[in-house]
């Protein structure tokens, strides 16, 4: 059973054939669209290397059925920079050595972008660590990642103040 879905991927609306309903969003991105930034680490929702934003929210793309996301907006690591100008989160990961081998980094960065949009962690490193616990880093770059998230969040709030969601929770 083959059918098409429509996704807006990194700002571009695309009609994409689904050859088999078993295809996950991760496999669709990597195999059909050749966007290989999102990584297949565990493929079971445990490592976070496949994290992308769907309709502005970070999720594990390995546990999302592509067919079910018909009509969604997807943002991957490939869509983050503007030309040669890196996104503030990307800049901050470089500044703070937020990676070593780099395999988990696209997922870490997309998760950090999602975390900042969620606006629940504030400037508390403990809350940032907790909110990043779905992204594993086998190189152990966690200290730099936490610093990078905090700095990027500060930079983004200075550049473009966003409406903060309720912090009651």
């Amino acid at each position: 059973m083959s059918f098409d879905i429509v996704l807006t991927v990194n700002g571009t609306r695309r009609t994409i054939p689904i050859p088999d309903p078993r295809v996950t969003l991760l496999d669709l991105l990597r195999e059909s669209l050749h966007l290989t930034g999102a990584k297949k680490g565990c493929d079971r929702g445990q490592c976070g290397a496949c994290t992308v934003l769907v309709d502005g929210r970070r999720i594990n793309s390995c546990l999302a059925l592509a067919a079910s996301l018909d009509g969604a907006e997807i943002l991957t690591i490939e869509g983050l920079a503007e030309g040669d100008r890196l996104h503030p989160v990307q800049e901050a990961f470089i500044t703070h050595d937020g990676f070593q081998c780099g395999f988990c980094t696209p997922g870490q960065i997309m998760s950090a972008v999602g975390l900042i949009r969620e606006a629940q962690a504030g400037d508390d490193p403990e809350r940032v660590r907790e909110a990043m616990s779905g992204n594993l880093c086998r190189c152990g770059a966690y200290a730099g990642i936490t610093e990078a998230v905090l700095e990027a969040q500060k930079a983004l709030s200075q550049n473009a103040p966003t409406t903060r969601q309720g912090e009651a929770a």
């Binding site: 929702g45 546990l63 998760s111 999602g114 969620e118 779905g134 309720g166 009651a168 929770a169």
Partner: peptide
């Protein structure tokens, strides 16, 4: 993160946020 819900049922909010990861909770 629904402020009114979390205020009325804080143990439910705490349980939700103690589970899984942010990515999984978003889905």
């Amino acid at each position: 993160h629904d402020p009114a819900f979390a205020e009325a049922y804080p143990a439910v909010a705490e349980a939700l946020l103690s589970g899984a990861s942010a990515q999984l909770r978003n889905a």
